[in-house]
Amino acid sequence: MNSSNAFEVRGMNLHYGSFHALKNIHLDIPKNQITALIGPSGCGKSTFLRSLNRMNDLVEGCRIDGDIRMDGEDIYGKIDVNHLRKRVGMVFQKPNPFPMSIYDNVAYGPRTHGVKNKPQLDALVEKSLKDAAIWDEVKDRLKKSALGLSGGQQQRLCIARALAAQPEVILMDEPTSALDPISTSHIEELALTLKDQYTIIIVTHNMQQAARISDRTVFFLLGEVIESGETEQIFSSPRDKRTEDYITGRFG
């Protein structure tokens, strides 16, 4: 295992019942970089992302074989799944703040993992909200319901909530697809500032977004990884014809 990689995936296959959703995936995800997963709808991007924090465990009939290692450790071996999910945070496509106060949303992760000390919790909440670039907008209404925020604010709150659990990796599944252009650019800037401290894997439908923010790009098609590499290279000189067709908008 190369220690500059957050994840190393070898010969991974995933089935939903009899449907073969991911086929023989080999992939390295480097630390402290933004990796973009692109590809047409239904090609398995979300499925792949959700297998990195074992969210697919919740899906009945989902079966995974092959090898996925995080820091050399087989994440489908004898590990604590809750601890894995603490280390690998997730931001969902649709902002999903809990129906509780802004403060309680952000404090949920730390409380789950045993932080009870009030000053420590306060500090963590504040830091997370600042890191997610939403502190100024919510600092006077921490006790108010999170559902009163706009969609873009809710998504940044969800990022703050993920950060507060102090993860190493953050998975983002089309985090801006439900947002307006201004909120989208907020989140993109945020991703760029976060990559110094975190490994970020982001699924996106938006080619420009992938080109703008990611260091590496992985192109999925029908459950297979067709091509992966430096984003620059993928977008300027793709090796595979299908990659070129997709990024130039000939299908998708």
Binding site: F92, F98, Y108, G109, A162, A165
Partner: peptide
Amino acid sequence: PDMYREGSFGLGAG
């Protein structure tokens, strides 16, 4: 909504 459950599991809650 299941997205609340997913949000919670995703943060490492049991």
